[in-house]
Structure formats: C-alpha cells, structure tokens
C-alpha cells in the first residue's frame, strides 16, 4: 500500500516509493526543522523565558512546539475552500487527504483554525497568545513549576490587558482565547497518537 504523509509540515503528501522508511523520515525531519527553529527563536524573545532553567526551557518547547505550530500555521487551513496548503506551496482538498489516509485530526485542525482566525486577532495579540500557549506550568517534566507559573501568569495578564485595550466591546475574546488552550492540548494528544501509529508502522 502506498504511503502518504498528510501533515502540511511536509513539502508534499506524496512519498517516493523507492525511498526507505529512514530516508522518508529524514526528509520529513528536514521539512519541519526550520519551523521548529523559528519556534525556539520565538521562545527566546519571550521576556523571562531565558531566565528559566535550561531543562524547563527544553521541556516547554518539547511539549508545546506542536501547539505553537498549529497556531502559527492556522492560515494553511482554508476553511472556505476546504483545502490545506503544504509547505511546498501546493493545496490539497480535504477529500484528497482523506483518501490518502488523513484521520479525524484533520477535521479538528480545520475547526480550530476557523475559530482562531474568526477572532480576528492582530499580529501582536497572536504573538502574545502564542507565548501563553508555550509557557504552561502543567507540562510534564517541569522542574521549577513556580517559576514557569509566575511567567505564565505575567503573560496571561499582559494578554488580557492587550485584548481589553484593543477590543473594549468584545470582552468574550479573552475567554474564548483561554478556551483554545484545552483545544490545543486535545489536538496535541491526537497528533501524538498519529505519530505513535506512524512509528509503529
């Protein structure tokens, strides 16, 4: 059976059947590495992030990179046309990706992207929200929970203040944004299950 990689972090979902599993994995890794590096560069710019221990910086990034990428690449999911743009620039319809083996994760990603984009956040708001997504004290393996929690609270306060200032008549936006955090966790868990299944195969 022909294998496809339906994650848009690939250049294309099509896999060269001549390539070994290792080569396919290497190519996939090569595709998403620049995006992961950008997440690390973003994290470094969050005031206070570099003051956390090295262990906690790595733990937060390991646990949260997928969620940050989902937020950053929400625009790859065109809800109106029901298409996904891969990193190679080509668009694929949901039906095509479904036929290639895409799971319910794809529909969940569409739902999330639609709701997030509909909030109409500015670049600054989206950036601060992304920082809140990354700095979560309840990630596994955090050594100094108090430090991460303190930074998380500072970022949440800053986000609330920015949203209140920019949208004085839309107080629900901040609540809606906080409710996106469990949605992202759920997507992260679904994605981890997919990765597990992929590795087992």
């Amino acid at each position: 059976k022909r294998m496809h990689l339906v994650c848009p972090m690939n250049t294309s979902p099509h896999v060269d059947p001549q390539k070994s599993g290792h080569e396919v994995w290497e190519e996939f890794s090569h595709s998403f590495t620049p995006a992961v590096r950008e997440v690390v560069e973003f994290a470094k710019k969050i005031p206070g992030f570099r003051d956390l221990s090295q262990h906690d910086q790595v733990s937060l990034l390991k646990a949260g990179t997928f969620e940050v990428l989902v937020v950053r690449f929400a625009s790859l999911f065109d809800v109106k046309d029901r298409t996904v743009t891969f990193l190679g620039g080509k668009k694929y319809s949901v039906d095509t990706l479904r036929a290639m083996g895409a799971s319910d994760l794809l529909n969940s990603m569409f739902d999330f992207s639609e709701k997030l984009i509909n909030l109409g956040l500015s670049e600054e708001e989206m950036s601060l929200f992304t920082a809140v997504v990354l700095v979560s004290a309840d990630r596994s393996g955090i050594e100094n929970v108090n430090s991460v929690e303190a930074l998380q609270e500072t970022l949440i306060r800053a986000l609330r203040s920015l949203i209140t200032k920019n949208h004085p008549n839309e107080s629900a936006i901040f609540t809606k944004l906080l409710l996106k955090l469990p949605d992202l966790r759920s997507l992260n868990n679904m994605h981890s299950e997919q990765l597990l299944a992929f590795k087992v195969h």
Partner: peptide
C-alpha cells in the same frame, strides 16, 4: 514511544537551537 518529541528528533533540534543562547549565558 511515550515521548513523541524525542522520537521525532525534536529535542535534538530544540537543544541545538537553544544552545548558542545558553552558551552565551554561561560565559
């Protein structure tokens, strides 16, 4: 298998990307 980030090689990429910054701090 319980750590998808490590399986993806993500931890290695993250550590390398953080490294320059962390070395600066140690100096």
């Amino acid at each position: 298998f319980n750590d998808p980030a490590s399986n993806l090689g993500l931890e290695d990429i993250i550590r390398k990307a953080l490294m320059g910054n962390l070395e600066e701090r140690q100096e």
